[in-house]
Amino acid sequence: MAERAASNVETPARTLLVVVGVAVVCAMLVSLTAVNLRPRYTANLEAYRLGQLESILDALSQRGYPVAAQDIEARVVELASGRYSDKLKPATFDARKAAADPGTSVAIPADRDVAALKRRAIHATVFLVRDAGRNVTLIILPVYGVGYQSTLRGFLALEGDTSKVLALRFYEQGDTPGLGARIQDPSWEAMWDAKRVYDDSGALRLGVARGPVPRGSEDAAYMVDGISGATRTSRGVHQLLRFWLGDFGFGPYLERVRQGKG
């Protein structure tokens, strides 16, 4: 303790000064690093997002839906009418920016806002694959919603007649590792394969169960197991699917696809 400084360090004023000083210097270091590295980080995230899109395509081709990246057609859809927009180009349309800008987004009525998003962009980019007869064989929808402590963003791939799920992949989430983050586990992702979206009456049934889906129950065709210990994340996924497949999400667009106008 020979090196310990004189006792005048111990006054409340000096204590406060040292604490504030350390806090300011540390905060500056952290924010400087964060700001300087952000472009690289977002570039990595974008590459990862594209990688996830490609991994959906890989998974599909292994299951007998051979799709090459160049066969994918990106289109901007006006969500309310379900029609394609010719003014907005997929290459330049930034859905995330559009959702944040009051000029290019709309407020979601409270009774329709099952995923607690408050606003959504007027338009969205969808990805399509067509067969030789120009019929849609595969639709990939961008979806997002609120998890436990982060925004979950992913892609939902549906069969061309919108009846079944081909894959659901989340490329961005910040929920608890080992619990909510398991929505990115291959084993959980695999459960979405071939789940039915609507029942025979046309009601939306796809979702996440609370806990495991009882075996042999009617729900087993539509629901996947909730993740134990991650109730809020599981609900978040359930609700974001209900919202984006519903009337205020891609519902009108999917209806047009079913009518052959996709």
Binding site: E3, V9, E10, T15
Partner: peptide, 16 residues
């Protein structure tokens, strides 16, 4: 900064 660190808050400053 060890000579300027008041004993009462040293652990919190270290953790920061």
């Amino acid at each position: 900064i060890r000579r300027f660190l008041p004993r009462s808050v040293r652990i919190i400053v270290q953790i920061t």
